[in-house]
Simulated assay, not measured.
Amino acid sequence: MNLPENLFKAKLNSLSPQFGIWSSLASSYASEIVASFGYDWMLIDGEHAPNTVPMIKEQLQSMMSYKTQPVVRAVSNDPVLIKQLLDIGAQTLMIPMVESAGQASALVRAMRYPPHGIRGVGGGLTRATRWGGITDYIGKINDELCLVVQVESRKGVENVEAIAAVEGVDAVFIGPVDLSVDLGHPGNPGHPEVQEHIRSVIAATRAAGKACGILATLEEDARRYLAWGCQFVAVGIDIDLLRRSALKNLSLYQDIDLAEATSRAY
């Protein structure tokens, strides 16, 4: 049995941007619906959505027959949790709030087997190895694993050059909203100071030869970040899209007066 190819990682440094969508509904059924839309990648959110490891596993399974590539965001940098997420078959992990090269290096070690890391060997017990069915999983898996670290604080911005330079970090992902809060402009990622820091993170990441991504649900923001050098952008959030679509749909009927509508019918 062959090891699944990580198409998200393979395309990170291509000239074609990858457009993604946030999945926060914490449902394998919803994730499969979203995966069928054709986005390049989908983030399964384990930080702000109520996802457990078994729930994330079910969502990974629901996406298998679609081209949309899963990216799993962990709730923290806990190496035990990272081991569990890798063992259930996640190949691309996004880790929030990385603020130093030391933290980034520790994450790389958490994703690798000894002697280059601390990941425990589950062997035939894990879905990642297809229960022992993948030949030489340990020898091959590093080529397919992808580590995306989130820079979303002033300290992270200050250390981004060192973070991006860490061997084993494949990409840096910017969190504009958290960054705006930490910079003293809560809820205003469009503030000039926040934008200046975003642009500096993109430039530093690209200078290190790594890919850079960001969340941008407004088209004008997404286009600007792509022009600045971002290679993968999340352009929608399932909950937000559902909410806005439902509200728009409801607004079509809120001005209807039943008595008046009935009289017109006759």
Rank of each mutant, 00 (worst) to 15 (best):
I82H: 12
I44D: 11
L86C: 06
V75I: 13
Q84G: 11
K83T: 15
L60C: 07
Q59R: 01
V72C: 00
Q69F: 01
P54L: 08
I44V: 06
V72H: 01
S65R: 14
V72L: 00
L43F: 05
S76C: 10
Q59S: 04
A74N: 10
P54G: 13
V80F: 13
H48V: 03
N51R: 03
D45E: 14
N77I: 07
P54K: 03
A74S: 12
V75A: 15
A49V: 03
V72E: 01
Q69V: 04
A49S: 14
Q61H: 13
L81M: 15
I56D: 13
G46T: 06
M55I: 05
H48K: 04
M55A: 14
P54V: 09
D78T: 02
D78V: 06
K57A: 15
E58A: 15
R73C: 06
A49L: 07
I82L: 13
L86Y: 00
M55P: 04
S65Y: 11
S65P: 05
M64W: 07
L86Q: 03
I82Q: 10
R73G: 02
S76R: 00
S62E: 08
E58Q: 15
D45H: 00
P79T: 08
L43P: 03
D87A: 03
V72D: 01
V53S: 11
K57W: 05
Q59T: 05
V53H: 10
S76L: 10
E58R: 00
Q69L: 04
H48D: 11
E47I: 01
G46C: 09
P50A: 12
D87M: 02
K67D: 14
N51H: 15
Q61Y: 09
L60F: 00
K67Q: 14
M55K: 04
K57V: 00
K83H: 11
G46E: 10
Y66N: 14
V53I: 15
P54C: 01
L43T: 12
M63R: 06
D87K: 00
Y66H: 14
L81H: 14
E58I: 01
A49Y: 07
I44F: 06
K67H: 12
P54F: 11
V80L: 15
I44G: 03
R73A: 02
V53C: 05
T68V: 07
Q84P: 06
V72S: 00
M63Y: 05
P54Q: 12
L86E: 02
K57L: 13
S62G: 09
Y66W: 14
I82K: 11
P50G: 12
I44A: 06
H48Y: 04
Q69N: 04
A74V: 00
K67P: 06
V80P: 08
L43S: 08
D45P: 01
E47V: 05
V72T: 01
D45W: 01
L43M: 15
G46V: 04
I44C: 07
L43D: 08
S65W: 12
R73N: 02
I44L: 15
V53L: 08
Q69D: 06
I44R: 06
